[in-house]
């Protein structure tokens, strides 16, 4: 299959996740596609131009919701200015936006989880972690260890200002930051979704608000980490997955 042919569809976000990933791998090494993609910027801007009879304006409420959220949203760190001598040419900014969009958490439809759920019986270990101040401090330390591990990767969750940190070396995930309020009687729960299609492995439950929590668990063969909303105490299978990050 000729990957070059997909450059137009890629520019239009018309590739499914698998194709987009394959194309991005190709793009990183293909100067031609990088150039072609960059040349399409004007055409993409034009498609986004408002129509002649379009008068909708951003709602007034949008301003407050954006600025409230960015007040506690941590920015990514700036990319390294230097590149290794044998690394491919840095992509133009459009590509960079695309590539970073690819690292953004993908919301898996509940389909994946539901499909996986029936296959294996799982021992549920929904553990309430916030027993005492001492435990909380230990967990915060653990979370910090995962976050600062050399191989740690940070993912945005689209869940308030909370970020997910994954370290294979530490064998764990950490959730740090502020999660949106939940109604009484509901709680968040973390899951590891195995790549082999077996049932999601339930992790700790966590409250809303400010938190720093680590979950040391088996990450070999994990396809994704998901966060769901559950009744208090957690569940054995996810009820409502609100966000998921592909590893």
């Amino acid at each position: 299959m000729d990957l070059h042919e997909m450059v137009g569809a890629y520019a239009l976000h018309a590739l499914d996740d698998d194709d987009a990933r394959r194309f991005e791998e190709h793009l990183a090494h293909c100067d031609e596609c990088q150039a072609e993609l960059a040349s399409l910027e004007g055409a993409l801007d034009a498609l986004a131009e408002p129509g002649d009879d379009e008068s909708a304006v951003a709602p007034v409420s949008l301003h407050a919701s954006v600025f409230d959220e960015i007040a506690h949203t941590t920015q990514v760190s700036a990319p390294e200015p230097t590149t290794a001598p044998d690394s491919p040419a840095e992509p133009a900014s459009l590509d960079a936006a695309r590539a970073s969009a690819a690292r953004r958490p993908r919301r898996l439809g509940p389909r994946l989880l539901v499909a996986a759920a029936g296959l294996l019986a799982v021992v549920a270990v929904g553990v309430g972690f916030f027993a005492s101040g001492a435990d909380e401090r230990a967990l915060a330390d653990e979370a910090e260890r995962v976050r600062t591990a050399d191989d740690s990767i940070e993912y945005a969750l689209g869940l308030g200002a909370a970020t997910l940190h994954v370290s294979q070396a530490e064998g764990g995930v950490a959730l740090i930051g502020d999660t949106p309020d939940l109604p009484d009687g509901e709680t968040y729960q973390v899951w590891v979704v195995p790549a082999d299609g077996s049932a999601p492995v339930p992790g700790p439950v966590l409250g809303d608000g400010e938190l720093a929590l680590a979950w040391i668990t088996e990450l070999d063969g994990a396809a994704a980490v998901a966060i769901s909303v559950e009744p208090e105490g957690g569940s054995e299978t996810p009820t409502e997955v609100v966000t998921a990050v592909e590893l």
């Binding site: 910027e41 951003a58 959220e69 990319p79 133009a92 900014s93 936006a97 945005a156």
Partner: peptide
């Protein structure tokens, strides 16, 4: 729009002026 604008804020350190316009970058998101 809220998600996109917050994402633009979060990723703004990755934006490099002179390598494509801010407008395209944001509309892409």
């Amino acid at each position: 729009a809220q998600e996109a604008l917050v994402e633009a804020w979060r990723k703004a350190p990755e934006f490099q002026p002179g390598r494509g316009s801010a407008k395209t970058w944001m509309l892409t998101i």
